[in-house]
Simulated scan of single mutants.
Amino acid sequence: MFKALLLEESGKDTLASLQRLNESQLTAGDVLVKVDYSTLNYKDAMAITGKGKIVRQWPMVPGIDYAGTVLASDHPDHRIGDEVILTGWGVGEKHWGGLAEKACAKGDWLVPMPAGMTAKRAMAIGTAGFTAMLGLMALERAGITPDQGPVLVTGASGGLGSVAVRLLAKAGFEVHAETSRLQHKEWLLSLGASQVIDRTELDKEPAALESQQWAGAIDAVGGRTLARILSQTKMNGVVVSCGLAGGVALNTTVMPFILRGVQLQGIDSVYVSKEKRIEAWQRLQDSLPLDFEEQAEVYPLEHAAEAARDLLAGKLKGRVLIQP
């Protein structure tokens, strides 16, 4: 038996309850993992509260990422006692996820824990930090360098945005952090941002082209904010899109693309290759402060549903860990 947060469908509502389940109820996989830490992501919070069509199969254990220790394995790459990380692959949506004491997964989905990293550190980084690193790697592949000007991070008070600020600053970029929560200004400056911007300054209908400000951007907001960023991006700049907190619609023009050569690069953190995953996790281990995990908020599994509501209400900042 093991504890898990179970989501069940009740008409148009989602019921979330802490239950004790049997291992035989776990979704199929060839590796059984003892979950040491999971996290609470925006997608998890939406699933738990029933907002958005996140869950694809019912009942569901949410939690799109987790880190832990292999308890049993039929996969050649993973042995009992190995420490592993899982992010993506539809876990928490189509396959039972990490907000539980145990999880079962396909071995091909698991990444070995980098040397020196702990499960707590891995989940303090989590899918949010992993996606932020993929965003930095995309900017680098496109040739964006610190001498080309400032890089904007939107949704900077959130999990993805706050890690992106740290990573970009560590890489030598001038980072401008956009947030709707100006009470976090000093915190964002301490992470490495050189300026903090109120979201209301960007959440306006854009002109086809505006003055050139950004060499690049990592955008976790989407919607009208993303359209405005595109209109303000410098010649041959790159905007990385990896979030939708401000909406999924994108009402823009072709002008930034055909007159300035701006690139809009999407980030898929769910099905990215294992090779790129391993590279990103090693870089995260090397790039973030040694005490990074100590700055995350830790909640017991029993309080995960409450934390999910607080996350959507904008009451939390940075990374949120769940310990089964």
Rank of each mutant, 00 (worst) to 15 (best):
G129F: 07
V33Y: 09
R141K: 15
E83D: 09
K12L: 09
A67C: 10
R319A: 12
L182Y: 01
I85N: 03
Y66I: 07
K120G: 08
V262Q: 07
G266F: 06
V238W: 00
M133G: 07
D74I: 01
A169Y: 05
A215W: 06
Y271W: 14
A142F: 12
E210P: 07
G50E: 08
L134F: 12
A280G: 12
T252H: 10
Y66R: 03
G223P: 05
M123R: 10
S10N: 15
S24G: 13
L244R: 15
D77Y: 01
S73D: 00
V272R: 08
T14G: 12
G149E: 07
Q295W: 08
S194F: 08
T225Q: 06
Y37P: 02
R79W: 02
G90D: 12
K276N: 15
V221E: 02
T200Q: 04
K43R: 15
L15Y: 00
L250Y: 01
R20A: 10
A4R: 10
I144H: 04
G158H: 04
T118Q: 11
I278P: 04
K12M: 10
V163G: 01
I144G: 02
I125N: 05
E8V: 12
K43Q: 09
R121L: 07
R319E: 04
I229N: 00
M1N: 14
D82T: 02
S162T: 09
T145P: 01
L6A: 13
L191D: 04
A305L: 06
C104M: 13
L18C: 11
A245P: 00
I267F: 01
M255L: 14
